[in-house]
Design a protein around this nucleic acid. Structure first.
Lengths: 346, 346
DNA sequence: CTGAAAGCGCTTACAG
DNA sequence: CTGAAAGCGCTTACAG
């Protein structure tokens, strides 16, 4: 790499000192109109760009946000990251993006190196493996701003931007029941992860409200990816219990179960109704899931980033607040008519 | 934010100097066994983490890679970013991710600020608006390592990791013809973007090879997003020309055209065969596109990153080399049987 | 209006 | 084996 031109380079050819150059470039009132113009012109000619690393070191602000997502190649998280980007752009922050791949150790390592890189704050969605909260307690002690999104750990003193998982699950399952579902299986997420726990509670609530008895043999617990859905369905099928519908904890789980379903009995596809959290990103075109809870990924990303920036600027205090984003129950091809206004505007 | 402990903090409580601490922590042979142990223990207790910003300033290596993608909430790019991450993790680099949103000006701004942040190298996929190449020439002059992926600008002296767009398009269109397509419309991308130009050339080649006359009224030029597909189809339909098949330059274009198709005549859906570059990420389940060119997003990301790291380490010279990644022609539900081994392993 | 001094947290090269 | 010096590129606070 070629050597970049520095304040000193400009200073020398102008027989001034780097301090004056620094001031001139930042329109400091100290500097006279004419030298300011002269300086800026030369800076331009010499292709000067401030070294932001050096600036960070003096200002102890890096204008950088660290992000940890469990997965990136998944519709929902990709949209969240898109939202984060939009707000970051607006306020002139850059994003250090890391992916935990649902791995607790990787998550911890990434957080540590982001902190070592002096990010001004962190945005994290917890991996499905994470059980040890030490690293987060340390972040809290260090008073490093952090906002959770989608998957959070409660009672650690951090704000979280999430959807109302329990409520949305209850509503979704009730809608299925009103549309004729009688025996609804649940491919559930781990209980120790917020979304797994809450969605399952919503499922139970819906059954109770509709006077249907909760049957544990209709529930299979697992992770949040396609593999879990695939094996979850196989497990379910092997139990020999009857069901006419499935509530999948995430879209990937629904997708995995659908693939398993094809193998077990292709006819099921038309006869088993499926509800999932999240969609494929190809709205209304995919026949599965028949019903889904539309999660506003981009809005979650935006909101979480705005909140984090407020904490960074000391406008908002970190606490255990949960900020809920609205979701929508969608019946494929019905209340989401495919038309121009639903284009993703890309 | 609480003040982090520094080398000096450790030095003081140990009545040593920061230099010795620095050496001790990095296992420099200068330091005696016992003080090394003492230092490390105290560092641990005091929760010391090196300030990577400071280290960057002295070492003039930031261990950071800047990435510019046109879109992030799109299956293909999300997979590419996933691949970039994997390799970055492996070699202990962090990723500064930016999104140009297909906007030339934003792209330029992001590149400038990434350079100002002293990234060790850049990975970029050019926005569909980009016509001015000045910023890239400057990058070249500054000898900052840069590798293009998917969408590149030729003859600027950078290596690019791409698919063989022309070849894959030719092959795909020929496959359609062999399956009975006779009049294939093309929703094409802009000519000034590599993938737009090459895919169109492939389309023409296929027609020629199969003895079908090229008909300009079957080609609509536009961008690479859903909107372009939507309006492209409407334009096509308005021309009153006959066609039995569509070749869409990207998956989003195919999706947009499909939505428009539904509006114009829902029956078309079963009668018009569609070929697109890229898929939905929900392999084999979506009825559209009937045919697609499977683009190995993750592999492209990995390969581009590996190449970039080699340039950063001076092992590979930047030149105008094009590295091609393999693609595969897929007929939905046919040569991509839905089964466990096709799970995305998530 | 311009400059000399000090410092951000670290590393490298040179003394002792 | 330990330390004093110098520097990475910038900014802040204080003199003149």
């Amino acid at each position: 790499m070629k050597k970049k031109t520095t304040l000193n380079d400009i200073a020398k050819t102008l027989k001034l000192t780097k301090v004056s150059i620094s001031k001139a470039l930042r329109d400091h009132p100290d500097i006279s109109e004419q030298t300011r113009i002269k300086v800026k012109q030369l800076a331009q000619e010499m292709g000067y760009r401030p070294n932001l690393i050096a600036r960070s070191l003096t200002s102890s602000k890096s204008k950088t946000i660290g992000v940890v997502v469990p997965k990136i190649a998944h519709n929902f998280f990709a949209h969240v990251v898109g939202g984060i980007q939009k707000i970051a752009d607006k306020y002139d922050y850059e994003i250090l993006l890391t992916v935990s791949d649902e791995n607790e150790e990787l998550e911890k390592q990434h957080i540590e190196s982001l902190v070592a890189m002096q990010v001004d704050g962190l945005l994290v969605s917890v991996s499905m493996e994470t059980k040890n909260t030490e690293i987060y307690q340390w972040i809290r002690e260090m008073q490093i701003p952090l906002v959770f999104f989608d998957r959070y750990i409660p009672d650690l003193g951090f704000n979280s931007v999430i959807i109302n998982d329990k409520e949305a699950a209850r509503n979704g399952v009730e809608e299925m029941i009103m549309r004729g579902s009688k025996k609804i299986a649940h491919l559930a997420g781990y209980e120790h992860i917020s979304i797994g726990k809450e969605r399952r509670l919503g499922y139970k609530d819906a059954l109770e409200k509709q006077g249907i008895e909760y049957d544990p043999s209709l529930v299979v617990e697992g992770g949040f990816g396609e593999n879990s859905g695939y094996h979850g369905f196989k497990e379910l099928a092997s139990r020999g219990v009857e069901f006419d519908s499935i509530f999948a904890v995430t879209f990937p789980v629904g997708l995995g179960s659908y693939i398993a379903m094809r193998e077990v009995d292709a006819n099921m596809i038309d006869n088993i109704a499926m509800l999932a959290f999240g969609d494929s990103g190809v709205r209304g075109i995919l026949p599965y899931p028949r019903y889904y809870v539309d999660q506003p990924g981009m809005d979650i990303g935006k909101k979480a980033t705005e909140l984090l920036l407020k904490e960074i600027n000391g406008v908002v205090e970190p606490e255990n607040k949960l900020v809920y984003m609205d979701t929508q129950f969608v019946e494929t091809g019905k209340n989401f008519p495919v038309s121009e206004k639903n284009l993703l505007m890309t």
